[in-house]
């Protein structure tokens, strides 16, 4: 019994899940109808659905970020890429004679996604081929990217009136929000592709021991380019959802700080910033924790705008828990406990 408990506690997802449960309970106490899900006009409604829907963009980016972080990297440019993809899509839709047609939207979305692939290859090139540290390489696109987005929108907030496009952000399919479905697909594809092909193993292997991987014949360069490209692709999808949700491309504010939320989700999910073993499931939990935190702040009645203070607290706590110093202190404490227990047993 206690062995089972110990195994559960030792599981890497234990603390993230506990965090999530605690947040949900707080919500339930503050707002007893929190778990109610109702069906209105054939659509699912309720706080939990809102959490899923609003958390979708963060989750999508966090999935890409997880793989990047597993290779010992980081991608700071995802917010800017999201802004660019939203701007591209909206400007194409606005420029088209039939903004409401499905074909226009399809073209707009495709072009936006293709551009994100180019941007991702660019990041991957800087990291893998030129050999610039990931944080710095992606800082370049983070800085310039919003400028590019502004350039595309010509400094305006582009409001589009295109039902098919808006559907991406706020539509429903079989009662489920489209954003949630897209997030589920991205998550599923990422999980399937990395685990069903050898990609996942190579990503971890390169993140854990790059030199041993090289000597075993793993091609790290191509791998890094693919991973950064995938991350940018995820960012673009998230950008499209965010833009479609408001039906407006705002180069300044689309995806602002979302890179930080995504990194936070990955870290909460138990993937170490030092690279190596990753957990997409952990990232899912992490993204839900963040979104639930935001919702909790709303329900409890704290000014929603103060969410960032709570996020700061969460980052700090998670980092301190992961810190080697803390681990040392803990193991020292445990050893002392064990010694004391051993003495006690010997005495009795």
């Amino acid at each position: 019994m206690s062995a089972l408990l110990a195994r559960i506690v030792a599981h890497r997802l234990f603390w993230p899940v506990v965090m999530l449960v605690v947040l949900l309970v707080i919500n339930l106490v503050a707002f007893p109808g929190f778990f109610t899900i109702s069906v209105r006009d054939g659509h699912l409604f309720g706080s939990l659905i809102d959490i899923l829907r609003n958390g979708a963009p963060t989750l999508i980016i966090a999935v890409g970020m997880t793989l990047v972080i597993a290779t010992r990297g980081i991608d700071l440019s995802v917010g800017a890429v999201a802004a660019i993809s939203g701007a591209v899509a909206c400007s194409i839709i606005l420029g088209s004679p039939e903004p409401g047609s499905l074909a226009t939207v399809a073209v707009a979305v495709t072009v936006a996604l293709v551009i994100s692939l180019v941007l991702g290859v660019w990041n991957g090139f800087l990291v893998a081929v030129i050999g610039i540290q990931p944080i710095i390489a992606t800082l370049i696109l983070m800085t310039a990217g919003r400028g590019v987005a502004m350039l595309i929108t010509e400094g305006q907030i582009l409001t589009v009136n295109s039902p098919p496009f808006k559907f991406l952000g706020s539509g429903f399919w079989f009662g489920v929000p489209i954003a949630v479905i897209i997030a589920a697909v991205v998550f599923g594809v990422a999980a399937l592709v990395t685990r069903r092909t050898a990609l996942g193993m190579f990503i971890e292997s390169v993140g854990i021991n790059p030199e041993a991987s090289r000597q075993s014949g793993v091609r790290a360069r191509g791998l890094l380019v693919v991973v950064y490209t995938f991350c940018a692709f995820c960012a673009a999808i998230a950008g499209l959802i965010l833009t479609a949700n408001t039906a407006a491309a705002d180069a300044n504010n689309t995806g602002l700080f979302i890179e930080l939320d995504a990194i936070l989700a990955v870290v909460i999910g138990g993937t170490s910033l030092a690279g190596g073993r990753y957990s997409l499931l952990g990232t899912l939990v992490g993204a839900l924790v963040i979104q639930t935190l935001v919702t909790t702040v709303y329900t409890v009645g704290i000014p929603p705008i103060a969410t960032m203070v709570f996020k700061a607290a969460v980052v700090t706590v998670v980092c301190l828990l992961q810190s080697p110093t803390t681990a040392e202190a803990f193991s020292g404490f445990r050893r002392r406990l064990a010694i004391r227990a051993g003495k006690g047993a010997a005495a009795s």
Binding site: I263, V267, L273, A306, K311, A312
Partner: peptide, 24 residues
């Protein structure tokens, strides 16, 4: 220094904190 947190993460937390306090 003490907790060996990467500078960018530690300052990220500070950034969140400062920005959040602004809103508060």
């Amino acid at each position: 220094h003490v907790f060996k947190v990467q500078p960018f993460i530690a300052t990220l937390a500070a950034m969140f904190l400062a920005r959040g306090l602004c809103y508060v």
